[in-house]
Design a protein around this nucleic acid. Structure first.
Lengths: 123, 123
DNA sequence: CGGTATCCAAAATGATACTG
DNA sequence: CAGTATCATTTTGGATACCG
């Protein structure tokens, strides 16, 4: 009966939690395309602070979604990459992208500034 | 060249923002399965407060992802449903579900309590 | 370069009480 | 039943300083 639905949602909760950080979808979307260095992520995610980027990356790493590789060079280089587990998210990211490209544009612009100021137009 | 990537990510940002609330993925996943009443959502999303549920629903509505229908009955009944626009998210939700069912179980349990206490096991 | 640490401000979320 | 109002707590942002 609806019992299956309940169990399913219950299992999904961990997945929701792992992707619910404020910048995690964007980070995972970027890493799904290719490996990124720390500085690269900072550059391509306007508005994120070093502090938050570090925190979100640490959480994703703790959840086993990304791996962190430090290269012993000067200056140091650190690369973030999807783990094998997270690479299974590819179809999800691609479906999300396809959805937005098809239905997203049908909406007025609003304000996308994810910085804290005017996160959302008048409530 | 990489210009396309930049533009793409730039457009995707609105989509990320619309789905980045703490409970939005779970709400959309549930609504993707069927229409839900306010009280139903409360019941099937353990830990969410009335306040937060209301807030998240209002934001999703403002973003055109869900519709709110009030039935003039006593006691009042309010149903939330995906809009045509959001129904395009179906494949995304299904890909996410398929991913988790295949790769998710490979992980230790940790703590899923999404309440604010012990959101995450030792950091 | 890729962080960590600190301090403060603002925003998001939670808890509880109350209401049409 | 489906909220709103109020207040408390947590999370996130901003800025700056410091380090291997």
């Amino acid at each position: 009966m609806a019992d299956d639905d309940f169990t399913m949602q219950d299992e999904m909760r961990r997945a929701f939690s792992m992707l619910s950080g404020k910048w995690k979808l964007e980070i995972m979307w970027l890493l799904n395309q290719r490996v990124h260095r720390f500085g690269e992520l900072r550059k391509v995610i306007p508005g994120i602070t070093q502090h938050m980027l570090t925190a979100q990356l640490r959480e994703l790493e703790a959840d086993g979604l990304i791996s962190r590789t430090v290269y012993a060079e000067v200056p140091p280089r650190v690369e973030y990459e999807m783990t094998a587990k997270a690479r299974g998210l590819g179809p999800t990211m691609e479906a999300l992208t396809a959805w937005w490209l098809e239905y997203g544009k049908t909406v007025p612009q609003k304000a996308i500034t994810r910085g804290r100021k005017k996160q959302r137009l008048e409530k």
